[in-house]
Design a protein around this nucleic acid. Structure first.
Lengths: 142, 142
DNA sequence: ACCCGCAGTGAGAACGATTGTCAAAACTCC
DNA sequence: GGAGTTTTGACAATCGTTCTCACTGCGGGT
């Protein structure tokens, strides 16, 4: 059993379900939950099991095709992303997201970690705020 | 170091349970789950309901007495923290944590957010790695 | 001290997101 | 077409966390 631990590049069979999930991901740019994506597929008449949506999302995240983040209350949100390392500027109200890069931050985290003797460093960084639209909308509302 | 309150929560009654949780938090410096903390209390003979542990941790987080973060799989981890704004360098294996500050990062996030028209900016940043002890331990082990 | 009102507590039920199960369906390659 | 995998899907099972609600105990009058 222990020998089965092969680092296979995972052959992803192109099934109807996976294509559907991939296309769904292309249709929006904000972060959404697996359940929302599942519902979206349902509305489109694409019948894909919830478990399959979760499985597909996970595999796509592993292969770097989608980004995942956790809300304050622990729910996972997903979104298609570019291949390069980056972080997000996310709107608290509408979920709109912008990919941002910060070379200086990358450098800083590595330095700090080394100073403290930490190896194999990785990090998570998300910036939350209220986007222009939501800010003016709430200002007008009240 | 008995007197603590002053400007915080209006009425936080000092009960046996809350004192127990507070003391438990003082007994370790790494991030732990609510359930682990509950178990720790149990071992010490302090009988505190699980729900109470959760409630207490939440309130302490709101008043800034503890920091909370989510693991990759969505579980919440807690730890007593200092009052100033800071981030963490956390060991993936043993949970050891170091508080770090990065004025430059704070500035950077605010700038980036403003550039994109985002208001009321906040952010999360955690650095993960393998601490010195865990790194040498695993090197020796295998 | 005694009473009272209400914040606080605990046991267990409820919840909700996610994962596991496993027989049936879909792919690939031959 | 057929064998051998991989994938799927309906549904059960997990598991951390929150809710419910009757009961407890802190604290401020009196």
């Amino acid at each position: 059993m222990t020998s089965t631990e092969r680092e296979t590049a995972t052959e992803m069979r192109p099934t109807r379900q996976r294509t559907a999930v991939a296309r769904a991901l292309d249709s929006f740019t904000d972060f959404r939950s697996a359940q929302e994506i599942h519902a979206l597929l349902g509305q489109r008449g694409e019948k894909v099991g919830l478990a399959t949506v979760y499985r597909t999302l996970q595999r796509m995240a592993e292969s770097g095709d989608v980004d995942a983040l956790r809300t304050e209350d622990g729910e996972a949100l997903w979104r298609r992303c570019s291949a390069t390392h980056h972080h997000h500027l996310v709107c608290r109200s509408c979920g709109a997201a912008v990919e941002v890069e910060g070379p200086a931050v990358e450098r800083w985290t590595r330095t700090i970690a080394e100073e403290h003797g930490f190896a194999e460093v990785s990090h998570t960084l998300e910036i939350f705020g209220s986007c222009r639209d939501c800010t003016s909308a709430s200002a007008a509302g009240s």
